[in-house]
Computed example of a mutant assay.
Amino acid sequence: MNHIDNIYDAVLDGDMGVIPESVQTALNANVPAADILKEGMIAAMEEVGRLFEEGEYFVPEMLIAARAMKIGLDLLKPYLIDSGVDPVGKVVVGTVQGDMHDIGKNLVSMMLEGAGFEIIDLGIDVPPANFVEAVREGVDILGLSALLTTTMPSIQDTIQAIEQAGLRDNVKVMIGGAPVTAEYAQQIGADGFAPDAGQAVTLAKSLL
């Protein structure tokens, strides 16, 4: 087995203990960082997403794989910057005001990072003004999450705040969370809705 295959398998299996050594071994063997990222990690996370869609993987497996990928990515980052590998796009994510849930948001963040996006996570209970500020600083996609029906209106408030700031054309807005639907996304003027983390990656790529 070659170095890339080892990394691919370690991410797929969520083997966090093996990842640092596998990545370092590949770098020592002069495997380009971009190849490790694309063929080792991103390809593995795409397969994780596929297995999740097919019901072979569940949220725990997805989380473990994403964590393994993140460990590898942290090691690779300095090499990727040196070799001038640009992220696919910049995504700001956050759970909207009044909502304290972050598992879904974190999973989406890790899956997007695994797909080569640069992620800025604003955390939980994020007021609309903070999202507006992030858009003003320059971002491709805004990912808004709500896990309660009572906090769903905060998604609409955030989109309206961006519109009022005259920034709506500068950013694509995708939304998600347990009570959120495609109909609701359409109704409030979001650009897209993803029912799970795997589909969030597909949606983000299509929005770019």
Rank of each mutant, 00 (worst) to 15 (best):
A44H: 05
V23E: 06
P32Q: 11
V201S: 11
A165I: 10
V88T: 14
D86I: 03
L148I: 08
F193Y: 15
A197M: 09
A33Q: 10
V88S: 04
M174N: 14
E21S: 12
D86M: 06
T202K: 15
P32W: 14
G143R: 01
G84D: 14
Q160E: 15
M45D: 05
G94C: 06
D125N: 13
S22V: 09
D86H: 09
E39I: 00
G114K: 12
D191L: 01
A182W: 01
L142T: 01
N2L: 02
I120F: 06
D169T: 12
I188E: 00
M62C: 11
G176A: 01
G72Q: 10
A44K: 03
T150Q: 08
V201K: 11
V201C: 11
T95F: 13
G94S: 04
V59E: 14
T158K: 00
A194E: 04
G104E: 08
A43Y: 02
T151G: 12
M111C: 12
P128L: 11
D15A: 14
K172A: 13
D125W: 03
S83W: 03
G114N: 09
I175H: 01
E53V: 09
G116K: 13
D99I: 12
L147G: 09
M41E: 05
A146Q: 05
N130S: 14
P179K: 03
M16W: 02
I188D: 00
A185V: 02
A129W: 02
G40V: 06
G143E: 01
N130I: 03
I81V: 15
V91P: 02
E54P: 05
I42H: 11
L73T: 07
D196S: 08
Q97P: 03
Q186S: 15
L12A: 12
D35N: 11
Q24D: 13
M100V: 15
A194G: 10
G176N: 01
H101M: 13
G17L: 10
G123C: 06
M1L: 09
T181K: 04
I124V: 15
G177D: 04
A43L: 05
V59N: 07
M100S: 06
E47W: 05
N106F: 01
I64Q: 11
I19E: 04
A29P: 09
D102W: 06
D9K: 10
D13G: 11
A26G: 09
R67A: 06
F131A: 09
S109K: 07
L63D: 02
G138R: 08
L76S: 04
I124T: 15
M111H: 09
D13P: 01
L112Q: 05
K90D: 07
Q199E: 12
D13C: 13
L51Y: 12
I119C: 06
M69P: 02
A44D: 06
Y79T: 08
Y79Q: 14
G176I: 00
Q24S: 12
L73I: 15
G94N: 04
K172V: 08
A115I: 07
T181C: 02
N106P: 01
I188G: 00
L107V: 14
S22H: 12
L144Y: 00
L112G: 03
G72P: 04
N30C: 06
V139Y: 01
V171C: 07
A178N: 08
K77G: 04
E21T: 09
A43D: 12
D13E: 14
D191E: 07
